[in-house]
Design a protein around this nucleic acid. Structure first.
Lengths: 145, 145
DNA sequence: TATGAAATTGACTGTCA
DNA sequence: TGACAGTCAATTTCATA
């Protein structure tokens, strides 16, 4: 039953407990208590607003794969501190594999992105190779529940 | 002022219009009107629940960079149709650059991931090279507003 | 400011080991 | 019986005109 609630909320996070209750065949308070229990258990760890980047004038999203040149603990800390100070960086992912970090960067257009890349990213401490992919489109899936 | 509202909502999407109004120094209805206007303008394009994958038993997140072997329009359509049918794929990003697609895949553990990779991903139509990075940690940033 | 809808709480009931 | 999960009714808080 909890799975049904999570799946429904993933599909539409705006629906109310009473709307959900009808759908899954429970009373409204029972449904609400389950949602609260999931929240308290940190299974539902938050709600997030989705902003339309295009409507805000940020038409370009680029993924950067970054390889560090030097990889001591201090290097990682320095890099993370510096990269999180770049406003255009939406997401910093520390990964294991061909790259050390993966960044999601938004910019107004490609020339704006070039500025970010040259002035901000290439000057980060310890940066080695940088590889870029420009986002064309993306689709979110419900994921396995 | 709208920027302040968006920033506050990005930090915490659960706060109410009245809570926000105090923070930004407007009346509650005025704040609510601004939020509604932002929704109507599709700047606020939705709300999403955040699930804790670990709490649900999915401890492994892997990013896959996929290069297609053949790239006609039919190949792209076939690939997208097939990849969106894999439940473990949370995110499909069509990109320009070294890779053609980037996938975010979750699995219970590494051996579960190996199953997904061998049975599901490597058998996708038109797949060429596949490169993987395992997520260690990630941090979301507010982004440029 | 006023109204209706939703969230939240409390009191009570039925089931199961 | 004790723990739990449910329903219904009452209250508070929020969204909305």
């Amino acid at each position: 039953m909890d799975r049904a609630i999570l799946a429904a909320l993933q599909r539409d996070a705006t629906q109310t407990a009473s709307a959900l209750s009808g759908r899954i065949g429970l009373s409204q308070p029972a449904t609400w208590r389950r949602i609260k229990r999931l929240r308290d258990a940190r299974v539902l760890s938050g709600r997030r607003v989705v902003l339309d980047r295009e409507a805000l004038g940020f038409g370009v999203t680029v993924f950067l794969g970054v390889k560090l040149a030097t990889k001591g603990r201090v290097s990682l800390d320095d890099f993370e501190r510096a990269v999180t100070a770049i406003p255009e960086v939406q997401l910093v992912e520390h990964v294991l594999g061909l790259y050390d970090y993966r960044l999601r960067v938004v910019a107004r257009d490609l020339s704006d992105f070039e500025r970010v890349l040259r002035r901000r990213v290439m000057t980060l401490p310890g940066v080695g190779d940088v590889e870029a992919n420009v986002l064309l489109s993306e689709e979110r899936r419900p994921g396995p529940l």
